[in-house]
Nucleic acid binder design. Structure first.
Length: 200
DNA sequence: AGCACGATTAACT
DNA sequence: GTTAATCGTGCTC
């Protein structure tokens, strides 16, 4: 149970990995605490040419994880308050990552409720920073290899998603980005979980 | 050494 | 619809 997906699953472009991540399980184990949820929304950021991707400025201290091994975590801090959780994909030296924007909780409801209080369960994990708050993800886990069987964060088998239930749109929150990157439909989300999607 | 800003959220009017 | 919260990062001087 909660066996991590093999690295080869992540060794493709972010645009290929992102839709494949929908329906998979995000699992977190710290001490005897377990939390898990089904990934319902994510976004692909691919390469230095993608002007919405942090790697547009090249290799820096912050973007280094994206140039590393697929299956590792890329976690960054933004707006002075929030953490964002990404999964690195593609080859070494090809910066690519998938931002996890929303999950549907399946395990650890009490812990999530405590961390997300006083918010109602409908908005517990429908946003990238909310997922990090619920799972207690921060820089401690940056560059973590999530393909190890004892990793505190793992991406595991989940539920099968028929292709017709996967919807696409432009990515959120990148309003200063020029075209075509502003409009390219690299946000992937599940139709059936619309109440669990991030707030736009 | 200083500065502008961000792959957001929650609590306002 | 608007705005405060709040600080690491990367760029410029």
């Amino acid at each position: 149970m909660f066996t991590p997906l093999p690295r080869i699953f992540f060794q493709k472009s972010a645009v290929e990995v992102a839709p494949a991540l929908l329906g998979k399980t995000l699992y977190m184990q710290e001490g005897n605490q377990q939390i898990a949820g089904i990934i319902s929304e994510c976004e692909a950021y691919q390469g230095e040419r993608d002007l919405a991707c942090h790697a547009r400025a090249g290799k820096t201290a912050r973007t280094l994880p994206m140039y590393g091994k697929a299956g590792h975590a890329y976690i960054y801090f933004t707006y002075g308050i929030h953490w964002m959780f990404n999964i690195v994909t593609d080859c070494i030296n090809e910066p690519a990552a998938v931002l996890i924007r929303a999950i549907v909780p399946i395990l650890g409801f009490e812990i999530i409720a405590e961390r997300r209080a006083p918010q109602p369960k409908e908005v517990w994990t429908n946003g990238p920073a909310k997922v990090c708050q619920a799972f207690n993800i921060d820089k401690r886990f940056n560059q973590l290899d999530m393909c190890q069987p004892d990793s505190p964060i793992r991406i595991c088998k989940g539920i099968a998603i028929p292709p017709e239930e996967i919807l696409q749109s432009a990515r959120i929150g990148i309003n200063q980005t020029p075209e075509p990157w502003l409009s390219i439909p690299w946000r992937f989300y599940l139709a059936e979980n619309s109440p669990c999607l991030s707030v736009i």
